[in-house]
Design a protein around this nucleic acid. Sequence first.
DNA 1: CGGTGATTTCACGAATTCGTGAAATTAAGG
DNA 2: CCTTAATTTCACGAATTCGTGAAATCACCG
Lengths: 159, 159
Amino acid sequence: MTERDDQAVLRFIERFASAFAETGMPRMPARVFVALLADDDGTMTAAELADLLQVSPAAISGAVRYLTQVNVVSRERESGSRRDVFRVYDDVWYEAIFRRDQMMARWGGPLKEGICALGPGTPAGRRIAETLAFFEFVHAELPSLLDRWRTHRDRLFNS
Amino acid sequence: MTERDDQAVLRFIERFASAFAETGMPRMPARVFVALLADDDGTMTAAELADLLQVSPAAISGAVRYLTQVNVVSRERESGSRRDVFRVYDDVWYEAIFRRDQMMARWGGPLKEGICALGPGTPAGRRIAETLAFFEFVHAELPSLLDRWRTHRDRLFNS
DNA sequence: CGGTGATTTCACGAATTCGTGAAATTAAGG
DNA sequence: CCTTAATTTCACGAATTCGTGAAATCACCG
């Protein structure tokens, strides 16, 4: 079964996008993202996306703005054409994890204020301090984890 | 500054809960969760929570059901009392990560179907296969990461 | 510059989420 | 058992999210 089964692809897009939406990404961006993942060269125009997903161009516009902001999709315009093509980056998962890490890094401020407000010596203060330490630990471990992923991936696919 | 500053604690609860809600947890469960984290012995009754967060008992009921289902809070009843006490588990972060991992594990099925539908030999099929490989890699790395966290934590706090 | 096709903006309406109040249910103590 | 306190359920209403359609804007081409 190396043939592309369009109907099954549609099903896949909807299912995986739904699963993805549950982790926090808004629904429409998730659908557009998965649609791009499922495209052979990972590039589609706004019109193609609108047609495939059966939504208005306006919906695509909003979704794509979100996806470019979170840095998993790039917008390109072939010079001499008037339509944009959107492309998923190769290292999307690397980027996605990196992004989540940055989000958690921004929790540091609020957490430190919390420790202060609770009192560093109190049980609650210590619990929040442990929370902070956990996120800092993960943050510190991430680079080596991503390195190992790249090595692992190269072994699997490029050799 | 080891005094507890109630107003600042409230601010902390709201801020951190908001940040947390952005990662996918519904707003009210996030508020209840952080409120419990900020409590010295990590236990509060429904009435205390309702009063602290200024919401109805019904809202607490729903939030707590969610939190017990995702396994970060336990419900206890002191025998000889008619009110429940809720407690955050000690290893919440361990649990939270574990849970997220389980969620990603459930993506395996849809992803495999997707590879099939796209054709394993196609570029899109290979892209999805790489996605699957990434999640499997993280899944495999997780136990050792969590082990290292516990070691690290013990060094920081228990020695 | 003007024409044309593509994209974005914006106000509206639908749909979903979310919390409340009141009634129903559960559980403890007399 | 009956009383009473606590919690849950459920229907309603408010608020937010989400996508559409139409108009406006933008960019390329002649």
